[in-house]
Amino acid sequence: MDITSARTFLEVVKTGSFAAAAANLHVTQTAIGARIRVLEQELGRPLFVRNKLGTQLTAAGQKFHCFAISLVRLSEQAVRSIALPHEQEAVISIGTELSISDPLVPLWLVWMRRTYPQFALSVRVDTAERLIDQVQEGLLDAAILYGAPRKIGLIAELIFEEKLVLAEAKGSTQSAASHETVRIDWGEEFSDAFHAAFPAAPPSSVAVSYGPLALEYILAVGGRGYFRRGFIKPYLKDGLLTLVPNSPEFSYSAYVIHSARADENIIVHVREGLRASSAGMAD
């Protein structure tokens, strides 16, 4: 069975239409239809029903879905494994959100390289939604996310519990910027909790989706914002930041997610490395 056709099938399932799958795969819609027809001929059953509601799986398509994921996973693993130097056993591939990558992922890479040099390592930074898709499709062994997604077939394990704390630049000038709270995007759950805690807070004139960038801005011009406690720990120690007294703290826990069908021999090493690395963050 052609791996390209299996990937095409999964893309149609993910996007819900032949047109969207064609756009994502950079091919024509005709090519998508041809690949799906080949699959249907091989399997002897229609895989999709196309109507005004979009493209939906038939009963046969639903059964084939898990096999398509396995086919793609095995193909990816085979390509990676065959290309490895003879002294390495396998590739461990993980994904991470940008906001959680520093310092956890660098610590994990160093720990894994020192502890299990027989494994090649691959790290991909992407959005939570795309990482979840890649774990489900078998393109990643695991992904590190803030928040545990509730998806059938996925297992989420707590890695560490983090707190978001309100910190401000120490010794700020008396400019308007020095008293402003920079809005940092920590997700919908944090946004809801923040507005519940500060219902009268005025809109911020500065909004940043990446914590380290917001921190650079605050250190340069003054102001305050919510940051991961572990991330700003060195800045608090050096006196560059100070915690705002009596301000609420918000939970922001990190999870490793993997498929229920993932290779446990790989996941056990990922889990071990992440827990060791998170312990290193607390030191």
Rank of each mutant, 00 (worst) to 15 (best):
Y252W: 10
V125L: 12
A60F: 13
T58A: 15
H26N: 10
E188G: 03
P149E: 05
S205V: 02
V12Y: 09
R150T: 05
P149T: 01
L154D: 07
I152A: 15
P103M: 05
V123F: 09
R113K: 04
V13K: 09
E216N: 15
P46E: 01
A60C: 12
K237Q: 13
A220H: 10
T115Y: 00
H195A: 15
G54P: 01
V256A: 12
V91K: 13
L121E: 07
F250G: 07
V27Y: 02
L84I: 02
A276E: 09
V123N: 08
E40F: 08
R73S: 14
A282Q: 11
A156D: 09
G147Y: 03
D141S: 11
V38H: 14
L240R: 15
S278T: 04
R261N: 09
A23L: 10
Y252D: 03
M1A: 02
L274N: 03
D126L: 07
A196K: 13
E97Y: 00
I132P: 11
R50W: 02
P117V: 02
R50Q: 14
G171I: 14
S204L: 07
R114L: 08
A214M: 07
I69M: 10
L104E: 06
N51D: 15
G211V: 00
E87F: 05
V165Q: 08
V72K: 06
G223D: 05
F160A: 09
P245R: 05
L71V: 13
R45T: 00
G171V: 11
E89Q: 11
A197D: 11
N246S: 12
L139M: 12
T96N: 15
I257D: 03
V110K: 01
A197V: 01
Q77Y: 02
L164K: 13
S70V: 13
H179K: 09
T28Y: 02
L71M: 15
S99A: 13
L74A: 12
F18N: 06
Q77C: 08
A21N: 00
G187W: 02
Q62K: 15
V91P: 14
D192W: 01
I82S: 15
L219G: 05
L164V: 02
R37I: 00
S93I: 00
T55H: 14
P106N: 05
A200N: 15
G95P: 06
P199S: 12
T173Y: 00
Y146A: 11
A156F: 03
L236H: 03
Q134M: 13
T28C: 06
C66K: 12
V27W: 01
V270E: 09
G171Y: 08
F227L: 11
S101G: 04
D141V: 02
K237H: 11
S278M: 02
G61D: 12
S253K: 00
